[in-house]
Amino acid sequence: MRVLTLAMLAVGAVSIAQPAQAQTYDPSYPVCMRVFGDPTYFECRYSTIAQCKGTAAGRGAECLLNPYFASAVDPARRRHRAY
């Protein structure tokens, strides 16, 4: 009886689990383009908003700043002057 209960519990846990999604934003570029469609997806491979808008012209897309862009300035390494 214990084996049957554990098997039913395992099947239930597997059936309600959802697949994991990949990271949406690529941290290598500062600008991303969201392309609307089925499915909606992001292309993070633009250096400027103007470059992105040139590619997005005539498409169902919008350009936005990448919130995960790994900028050249590391805030943790800034030196603060002691007063």
Rank of each mutant, 00 (worst) to 15 (best):
R45T: 08
N66F: 02
A20C: 05
F42D: 14
I49A: 00
N66V: 11
I49G: 01
Q51R: 05
Y25R: 12
A56D: 06
P67K: 11
R34S: 00
L65S: 08
P27V: 05
T55C: 03
Y25C: 06
L64R: 12
E43D: 15
P30C: 02
A57I: 12
Q18A: 14
S28V: 10
A22Q: 06
P27A: 08
P30S: 06
G54Y: 04
E62Y: 12
V35R: 13
G37W: 13
T24M: 09
Y25G: 12
L64I: 14
K53L: 05
R59N: 08
P27S: 06
I16W: 09
T24C: 01
Q21K: 05
Y29G: 01
A22F: 02
K53T: 15
P27H: 06
V35T: 09
L64D: 04
E62A: 13
T24S: 15
V31D: 05
D26F: 03
A61P: 13
G54S: 13
K53Y: 06
C63T: 10
P30F: 01
D26L: 05
Y46A: 01
V31H: 01
M33L: 09
A20N: 01
G54A: 11
Y46D: 07
G58K: 05
N66E: 08
E62Q: 11
V35S: 08
P19R: 03
E62M: 15
Y68V: 15
G60H: 15
Q51L: 02
Y46N: 02
L65W: 00
P39G: 04
P27F: 03
C63W: 10
Y46I: 02
S47Y: 03
Q51H: 06
E62I: 12
C52V: 02
A57H: 06
V31L: 00
E43C: 10
I49Y: 00
P30Q: 00
P67V: 08
F69Y: 15
C44F: 07
Y41F: 14
A61V: 15
D26Y: 00
T55Y: 09
Y68S: 12
C44A: 10
A22T: 12
T55M: 00
F69V: 14
N66G: 09
Y41L: 13
N66W: 07
S28Y: 07
T40W: 05
S15D: 00
A61R: 13
T48I: 01
Q21N: 10
L65A: 15
S15E: 03
Q51V: 08
F42Y: 15
A56H: 09
R34N: 01
Q18T: 13
E43Y: 11
L65Q: 08
P39H: 10
Q23A: 13
A20R: 08
A57Y: 10
T48R: 01
Y68G: 02
A50E: 13
Y29E: 03
S47E: 07
I16G: 02
T55D: 00
K53A: 05
A20M: 02
E43F: 12
